[in-house]
Amino acid sequence: MEVRTIKVFTTVDNINLHTQVVDMSMTYGQQFGPTYLDGADVTKIKPHNSHEGKTFYVLPNDDTLRVEAFEYYHTTDPSFLGRYMSALNHTKKWKYPQVNGLTSIKWADNNCYLATALLTLQQIELKFNPPALQDAYYRARAGEAANFCALILAYCNKTVGELGDVRETMSYLFQHANLDSCKRVLNVVCKTCGQQQTTLKGVEAVMYMGTLSYEQFKKGVQIPCTCGKQATKYLVQQESPFVMMSAPPAQYELKHGTFTCASEYTGNYQCGHYKHITSKETLYCIDGALLTKSSEYKGPITDVFYKENSYTTTIK
Rank of each mutant, 00 (worst) to 15 (best):
V3T: 11
V3H: 11
R4Q: 15
T5F: 14
T5R: 13
I6H: 07
K7H: 14
V8D: 05
F9H: 11
V12R: 10
N14M: 06
N14W: 08
I15G: 07
T19Q: 09
T19F: 10
Q20M: 15
V21H: 09
V22Y: 05
M24H: 09
M26Y: 11
T27I: 13
Q30F: 06
Q30G: 07
Q30T: 10
Q30N: 06
Q31S: 13
F32G: 07
T35N: 05
T35L: 09
Y36E: 03
L37P: 04
A40P: 09
T43H: 12
T43I: 07
I45K: 15
I45Y: 13
K46I: 09
P47D: 04
N49F: 15
H51Q: 10
G53Y: 12
Y57V: 14
Y57E: 06
V58W: 06
N61L: 12
D63N: 12
T64E: 15
T64I: 09
L65K: 15
R66P: 10
R66Q: 14
V67K: 14
V67F: 15
E68N: 14
E68L: 07
A69F: 12
F70N: 08
Y72T: 09
S79K: 13
G82L: 10
G82H: 15
G82W: 14
G82A: 15
R83C: 08
R83P: 03
M85K: 09
M85Y: 15
S86F: 08
L88C: 05
L88H: 06
T91I: 04
T91R: 04
T91W: 04
K92R: 12
K93L: 13
K93C: 09
K93Y: 15
K95T: 08
K95F: 09
Y96L: 04
P97N: 06
Q98R: 15
Q98H: 08
V99H: 10
V99M: 11
G101Q: 09
G101L: 04
L102Y: 07
T103N: 04
W107Q: 06
A108Y: 05
D109E: 11
N110V: 03
N110P: 02
N111C: 02
N111W: 04
C112L: 03
Y113Q: 01
Y113W: 08
Y113S: 03
L114Y: 03
T116H: 05
T116D: 05
T116L: 04
T116I: 05
A117K: 04
A117L: 07
L118T: 03
L119P: 03
T120Y: 01
I124S: 02
I124E: 02
L126Q: 02
K127S: 13
F128Y: 09
P130D: 03
L133T: 03
Q134I: 09
Y137T: 04
Y137M: 07
Y137V: 07
Y137S: 08
Y138N: 13
A140S: 08
A142C: 15
A142F: 14
G143L: 04
G143H: 05
A146Y: 07
L151N: 02
I152K: 02
I152G: 02
A154S: 08
C156P: 02
T159W: 08
V160M: 03
V160S: 04
G161P: 04
E162Y: 02
D165V: 03
D165N: 07
V166E: 01
R167K: 06
R167F: 05
E168D: 07
E168L: 15
E168V: 11
E168N: 09
L173Y: 02
L173N: 01
F174H: 00
F174G: 02
Q175Y: 10
Q175D: 06
H176P: 01
H176W: 14
N178H: 08
L179Q: 01
S181R: 14
S181Y: 13
C182Q: 04
K183F: 11
R184A: 11
V185F: 03
L186Y: 12
K191W: 07
K191G: 13
G194K: 06
Q195S: 14
Q195I: 15
Q197T: 11
T199F: 08
L200S: 12
L200C: 10
L200N: 08
K201A: 10
K201N: 13
V203T: 12
A205K: 00
A205R: 01
V206P: 02
V206F: 02
M207G: 05
M209N: 12
M209H: 09
G210W: 01
T211M: 11
Y214N: 02
F217G: 01
K219Q: 14
Q222R: 09
P224Y: 15
C225T: 01
C225S: 00
K229D: 11
Q230C: 06
K233F: 09
K233T: 09
K233H: 12
S240M: 02
P241F: 04
P241K: 10
P241M: 06
V243Y: 01
M245L: 08
M245I: 02
S246F: 00
A247R: 03
P248Y: 10
P248N: 06
P249T: 01
P249L: 00
P249F: 02
P249H: 02
L254N: 01
K255Y: 08
K255C: 09
F259C: 00
F259K: 01
T260V: 11
T260S: 07
T260F: 06
T260Q: 08
Y265P: 03
Y265W: 01
Y265D: 01
T266N: 07
G267S: 07
G267W: 06
G267D: 07
N268Q: 11
N268Y: 07
N268M: 08
Q270A: 12
C271Q: 14
K275V: 11
K275L: 04
T278S: 10
E281N: 06
T282M: 15
T282L: 11
L283V: 10
L283A: 00
L283K: 00
L283P: 00
Y284I: 09
Y284V: 12
C285G: 04
G288C: 00
A289V: 09
L290E: 09
L291R: 06
E296S: 13
Y297N: 03
K298Q: 15
I301H: 00
D303L: 02
V304A: 00
F305S: 00
F305E: 00
Y306T: 00
K307E: 11
E308V: 11
N309L: 11
S310R: 13
Y311L: 08
T312V: 15
T313S: 13
T314F: 15
K316Q: 11
